[in-house]
Nucleic acid binder design. Structure first.
Length: 328
DNA sequence: GTGTGTCAAGCAGAG
DNA sequence: CTCTGCTTGACACAC
């Protein structure tokens, strides 16, 4: 069981999401942004390893405009060594990684053009995994898509498009149950049609379900993952922010809710992505909770104090990101 | 330096 | 019709 957090480390002074405007696109800017993003990605992974956080979701913006036609720069070959080095680090430290292409990826859209661009985006993100030398246990996590007023048609259209995906993408795509449109039951139906594994989201299941108890839902979702080809089932974990709109995530891990959730696993193994606003801070607490229950490896010997944590009390008040280089 | 409108992309639902 | 939320804020220009 590994614990992870998505995309951003709030304690670090770098971002792996450097970008720029489409209107100001140039190869030079692309090279600058990708270089910075890969360097930061590497540092985040190293920090994660030092903290026992062995699961991580990479952001969609590592290569700005990675699937846009404007981007004709051969970044795959230009940055091959950097990607490979990150992949080697991932494998050497037994890390698990995933990607979550954004809401614009809609494989079941009635619009052929939207489907085409969606596949392009999956190819872009999957090609990063290829460049890192990662196998099919690294995943691309997406939603079923739109409802368009006809649930069965929407699901079957996903299945048809799924069958046409390039093999390297198809081996990595997993589908997440969502909180408003497509429930776990819909995803199980889609799994029967396509074999696509289901990435279970406990909070979405709480928002939208057909009465399946949490333990049963976990068992059903886990059963859609092939033990070797897909690896340990992944899941997203969150809980309801009290007093907020239904579906709103908490800002901070609610320890007792997480402990209660763990009781439903009944020995099932999952790699758990914490979708919680304060990111790595909650992930660290989740790791501690797993350790207190013997569900996770003991703390590694920390070779060095955590980078940038805790914040230097002598530092000037608030400076989450290191200030950009001053060119006075 | 700070404030802020806007940024490649889809869809559903609230108001 | 407009606005919001969704896995993640950051760019770029006005002042």
């Amino acid at each position: 069981m590994k614990i992870g957090y998505p995309c951003v480390n709030e304690a670090m002074d770098c971002s792996a999401a450097n970008t720029f405007r489409l209107a100001s696109y140039s190869d030079e800017r692309l090279i600058t942004a990708v270089s910075a993003n890969l360097a930061c990605l590497r540092r985040m992974l190293e920090w994660n390893v030092s903290q026992g956080l062995l699961f991580f979701r990479m952001g969609s913006g590592i290569v700005p405009f990675g699937s846009h036609e404007i981007n004709t720069f051969p970044w795959q070959t230009h940055f091959a060594a950097e990607f490979r080095a990150i992949g080697d680090y991932i494998k050497a430290n037994d890390l698990r990684v995933s990607f979550h292409p954004d809401q614009f990826v809609v494989l079941n859209s009635p619009s052929p053009d939207i489907v085409r661009r969606s596949i392009q985006e999956l190819v872009y993100q999957g090609s990063m995994q290829d460049l890192m030398g990662l196998d099919g246990t690294a995943k691309l996590q997406i939603h079923v898509g739109g409802l368009y007023g006809e649930r069965e048609l929407a699901i079957s259209r996903f299945a048809q498009v799924h069958a046409t995906l390039p093999e390297v993408v198809k081996a990595r795509v997993v589908v997440e149950n969502d909180d408003r449109l497509f429930s776990l039951r819909d995803c199980l139906h889609l799994h029967e049609l396509t074999g696509v594994p289901i990435l279970f989201d406990n909070f979405h299941h709480e928002c939208l379900n057909h009465g399946e108890p949490m333990a049963e839902a976990l068992r059903l979702a886990a059963g859609t993952w092939h033990p070797t080809a897909d690896g340990v089932p992944m899941m997203d974990y969150s809980s309801q922010a009290l007093g907020e709109r239904k579906g709103k995530h908490t800002d901070d891990l609610v320890d007792d809710s997480f402990r209660e959730f763990l009781t439903h696993l009944h020995g099932l193994d999952f790699d758990i992505m914490l979708e919680i606003k304060n990111k790595e801070a909650s992930a660290l607490r989740a790791v501690a909770i797993l350790r207190e229950r013997g569900l996770s490896a003991p703390a590694p010997n920390l070779p060095e104090p955590p980078l940038n944590l805790p914040p230097d009390p002598n530092a000037p008040a608030k400076a989450k990101r290191a200030p950009k280089k001053v060119v006075s």
